[in-house]
């Protein structure tokens, strides 16, 4: 079999790390219902919290396609859990770009891994897409679903076409910071234990 081809073992690794990453995201995502500014701060929290599992995942990535498949899975799960399909293209594009960046470093270069994780984190902003693109109907939907007008107002103050650029940059920056922290955690715990 071609050494470049993905094997069943790789697919299982992808599945496991996607599940972990999703659980982390879900746990933090629930906080967003308390206040909309927390929704905006996902771009800080999620890259940091997700960094440890992802850095462990990166140590297992050696072939092209694993990160892309992960992003496809995330897009599917997002759809199933009712977060919409508008973000899916961005999500998969971020995954593909992250994969290509990591590939250019041969999946070994730490610098490329940092960049790649930063790009990968951009999928988090995909969650905001329904808020921006369908702003008016989304707002109506929120209010009708029982959210207060205050919540809706703050949500749109925090997330709109003007702030999305900032959010994307913040997301990328914290992705890179997260990568360093995650790498340190992986080194501290896993490399010493000989797991990686």
């Amino acid at each position: 079999m071609n050494a470049k081809q993905l094997t069943a073992k790789d697919f299982i690794t992808i599945g496991i790390f996607t599940a972990i990453w999703f659980v982390v995201e879900f746990a933090f995502g629930m906080l967003g219902y308390i206040h909309p500014y927390i929704v905006a701060s996902y771009v800080v929290m999620l890259p940091l919290a997700g960094a440890i599992p992802m850095m462990l995942f990166y140590t297992k990535v050696e072939k092209f396609g694993m990160i892309t498949i992960m992003s496809i899975l995330i897009a599917i799960i997002m759809f199933v859990t009712g977060m919409g399909y508008l973000g899916a293209p961005l999500c998969i594009a971020a995954g593909l770009a992250a994969d290509l960046i990591a590939k250019s470093g041969g999946y070994k270069s730490f610098k490329k891994t940092v960049l790649s994780y930063g790009v990968f984190c951009l999928w988090i902003c995909a969650n905001y897409f329904p808020v921006i693109i369908t702003a008016e109907s989304y707002r109506r939907g929120l209010v009708e679903a029982g959210f207060s007008a205050e919540y809706a107002e703050s949500l749109f103050r925090a997330i709109n076409t003007r702030t999305i650029g900032v959010l994307l940059i913040v997301c990328f920056v914290f992705g890179c910071i997260g990568a360093y922290l995650g790498k340190a955690a992986v080194k501290k715990h896993f490399e010493k234990a000989g797991i990686v």
Binding site: I12, G15, I16, A19, I69, L73
Partner: peptide
């Protein structure tokens, strides 16, 4: 296969986590 296997693992993995 890639998506099918990974998705099956994700599905089975939540209870394990």
């Amino acid at each position: 296969d890639g998506i099918a296997i990974s998705l099956a693992v994700v599905m089975r993995f939540f209870p394990t986590i």
